[in-house]
Every structure is written in C-alpha cells, then in structure tokens.
Nucleic acid binder design. Structure first.
Ligand SMILES: [Mn+2]
Ligand SMILES: [Mn+2]
Ligand SMILES: [Zn+2]
Ligand SMILES: [Zn+2]
Lengths: 171, 171
DNA sequence: GCCGAAATTGAAAACAGTTTTCGTAATCCA
DNA sequence: TGGATTACGAAAACTGTTTTCAATTTCGGC
C-alpha cells in the first residue's frame, strides 16, 4: 500500500530525453548552448537523489575543474525554470535539487538520524488537502509536506535517537 | 467544518502565564533574568501572527532602543528551547516565530499574493500521515505541511494571480 | 570562415540572514 | 557586597547564494 518510491538508477534514455528537453528550452529562450551547461546538466541528470549545489559542483569538477559555483547556480536556476528540476529545502540550510524521471508530485519523509529521504505519494492525502483548501476558499498552487523522524527498522537510527533525542533543526 | 483558526488577540492572562513559564525555564537552566529579555518576551507574546526577527526588533526598540539584534536572536532561541515558541519558515528566507496561546499543532495555507497566512488543523490529515509513516516503518517526530496558493475570495489576489502567474518562491 | 552583437563564464565582491566574538556591564548567591 | 557567572551590544564573522565585471564564447548573418 502506498509504496515508498525507490530511487531509480537514472535511465540512460531518459537522461538523453531530458538533455534534449533542456536544449529545447535553451533555444526557445534564445539562450546559447555552452560546454559548461552541457557538462552540468548531464552530470546532474545522471545523479540520483536530492542533490546539493556543492555535491553537484564536486561531480562537475571531475569533468571540468574550471567550472565554478556561479555557473552551477545559474544552470540550476535554468533547470528549475525549465520545469525539469525541482528545488527542495529540508531545513538543513541547503537548497537541494531533484530531476525526477517521472513528473509526478511526491512528498518526503526525512530520517533525522541517518539522513535518508523516503518519497511517497498518497492520493487521499492530496485530495484531503484540496478539500480543506476548498472549505477555506483557498486555491492551492503547490504544497509541501515533510515528515521528520526516524527509520524504525534501522537499529542505528533507533539507538542514536535514544541519546541524542530529537536532532535540532538548523537552517 | 475544519475551521481556519482566527488569530486571537493575545489574552493578557495567558501572556502573563507565559512570561512566568519563561521565567521558570530561565531559572531551571541557571540563567539570569535581565531587563532586555523581559522586554523582548513581553513584546513578543503581545504580538500575534508569525513574527520575523526584524519585526520583533522594531517593536522591541520602541520599549528600549538600545536592544540589538544579537539579544533578540538569542532570546528567541531560548523561547524555542523552552517550548513556548515555534520557529517557522515559509520560504521567504526569514525565520518566523509564533507563540501560540494553545500548544496545539497546526498547519498553514499561505497566500502568495497578499501574504496572508491561514492556520488549520485536521485530525484525518494527521492520522493519514501517521498511517503512511507506519506503513513505511517510519516514526514521525514532527511534520510540516504548507499549502501555497491564493485566496479565492479576495478580488485582489485573483486579479494579481492572473498577471504575475505563480509568484516565485525565494529563500 | 569571419564579424560582431549578445550571451556566458569564473573569480571575486556583494548580499542577507544569522551567529559569534569580545570587551564591558548586569545579575545574584554566598 | 564581592565576585564568579551570565548577559549585552557593536562589530566582525559566517554561510549559502547572488551579483559584478572584465574576458571569452556563441551563433546568425555576411
Ligand atoms: Mn524527492
Ligand atoms: Mn501558525
Ligand atoms: Zn503531496
Ligand atoms: Zn499537521
């Protein structure tokens, strides 16, 4: 029931498809194709999970060490604007990015002990939000739902939980 | 059905109760009572809504212009630590604080046009989250649910919505 | 291919919100 | 009331992100 999505290995075909979609976007906007942007997006799309700027830059530098933060930030903004990528913030002060294989919306459970992030989607939950909004005469554009807690099945997370109590949330 | 909470005028008795609770907290921690902290907390508890640090400092300065950012930040941390106040972040890059008359948990709807924030609580929604977590062997410590959108009943918000499309979310 | 306007890059500076430092002042218990 | 301890406030530091700016690259038209 309501399975947590497993993070897929990025599918090479899908990656190419996205690269093409981004190229389209760039062209439509009258922007230029550059070596750096190509490096950045192809690196990004081949990563999985919720990637921070620093993580991405580190990977990118392996392909081209001269690429700097500014270009990565700028390219991520373009990716978001293109709709191919979503920005997330889970309260650790870093922006994280995910470019999902499927465009589906989903929500997150974040383990405060091991940092693992589970993704889930539940239609009843979504519908309930809609109906609550409706009742208050509110029109939802988007929402965010994050459950913070601990993995129950990992001894490590349960062990740590007992001493460190609830890890403080920074930002 | 599932009423949006109206922001109450802070009740003078409740405010005094909280001031006392904070004094207790300070004492239990072996900290000292200071004029500045008293000014800050009594100002804070008499405000309503989701207060930013700058907003609070502005108010505080009316009582004592010599109080600075550092002390306000430090006092807010203590308030959060005491459990009397919660920190919120709605994606505009500012921390906001609320000290609720009732300790109840609640979630938020945020109008991206006029900035108004509605609070709501729905037991079915909460229960559904629990059961989803259960299914994934996840233990929830806390969660955050925010619905971003627009007031349906304010012409201004509907008007603006049509041109500015969805306001971008900064942080 | 070459020109040149327009876009892009990268290093460094700027920014914004928040935290820390550090010298001075206030608190409060023995 | 002495004096160890805690707090204050201004300014500096910090962090993640954005902007600036001079130099480089792109690309449509010749
Ligand atoms: Mn995700
Ligand atoms: Mn609230
Ligand atoms: Zn959802
Ligand atoms: Zn809730």
């Amino acid at each position: 029931m309501v399975p947590v999505k497993k993070l897929r290995e990025p599918d090479e075909n899908l990656v190419r498809q996205k690269e093409a979609a981004f190229a389209d976007f760039i062209q439509r906007k009258g922007l230029k194709t550059t070596r750096q942007r190509n490096t950045i997006i192809s690196t990004f799309f081949r990563l999985r999970g919720h990637i921070s700027v620093e993580e991405l830059l580190n990977q990118v530098k392996q392909a081209n060490p001269r690429i700097g933060y500014a270009t990565v930030y700028r390219t991520l903004h373009l990716l978001v604007e293109s709709g191919l990528v979503e920005e997330r913030r889970f309260g650790d002060g870093l922006a994280r990015y995910e470019g999902h294989s499927d465009v589906e919306h989903h929500d997150h459970m974040i383990c405060l002990e091991c940092g693992e992030i589970f993704e889930f989607f539940n239609p009843r939950l979504e519908a309930l939000q809609e109906s609550l909004a409706e009742e208050n005469n509110f029109q939802i554009f988007r929402h965010r739902l994050e459950l913070y807690g601990a993995c129950k099945d990992k001894e490590a997370c349960q062990r740590r939980k007992s001493r460190s109590s609830v890890a403080a949330q920074a930002e």
